[in-house]
Amino acid sequence: MGNVAISVGRRRRRWPEVEERLTQPRRLLRQLSDVDSGRLRRLIRSGDLAPCFDAAEDDAGLDEDCPICFYFYPSLNRSKCCGKGICTECFLQLMPSKSSKKGVFQH
């Protein structure tokens, strides 16, 4: 009983209830051709990424604002090194693209 199913000594995480619309970015400034929408949906539902919340321009009871877009959100993603927050849509835009990971400037 409870929120986590246990089977043969292993714990399985229960995916949090996230509305489908919150698993798709809507405010992107550039087209992200190499974002796998299925993987993004799984990361959000597993709790590894914050949902793509609707942005608020003023505080309206929300504690955190993204330091890049300056909108307020119910929760942000946290960096592992310093704990600073960033919204999911800004994070997606700052991710290196597949072409930059291949070493475009290598000889």
Rank of each mutant, 00 (worst) to 15 (best):
L40R: 00
R42Q: 12
R13V: 14
D63P: 01
K102D: 03
L43F: 13
E19V: 09
V8E: 11
D65T: 04
G9H: 10
M1E: 14
A50W: 01
I86K: 03
T88A: 04
K84A: 15
K80R: 11
D34F: 01
L92N: 08
C66G: 08
S37R: 11
C87Y: 02
T23N: 03
R42K: 13
K84M: 07
L43A: 14
P51V: 12
C82I: 04
R10S: 14
E57T: 04
N3H: 11
Y73S: 14
C52M: 05
F70R: 06
R11Y: 13
G2A: 10
S79R: 14
A50R: 01
E17Q: 06
G61L: 06
S46W: 04
Y73F: 15
R14W: 00
G85D: 08
C66W: 00
R42N: 07
P96S: 10
Q31F: 09
E20V: 15
G9L: 08
E17C: 02
M95G: 02
S97F: 00
K84H: 15
I6H: 02
L49I: 07
E20W: 03
K101D: 02
E89G: 09
G9P: 07
I68T: 14
L76Q: 03
C90K: 00
P16R: 09
Q106M: 02
I86G: 00
S97M: 06
C87D: 15
C82S: 13
C90G: 07
K80N: 05
G85H: 00
K84T: 10
L94P: 00
K84Q: 12
N77L: 03
C52H: 02
E20R: 08
E64I: 06
A50G: 04
G2K: 00
E57W: 06
A50E: 11
R39C: 10
E57F: 08
Q106D: 07
F53Y: 15
K84V: 08
G47N: 03
C81M: 11
R45V: 15
L92A: 14
I44A: 06
R21C: 13
S97C: 04
S79F: 14
L92V: 13
I44N: 01
L40D: 13
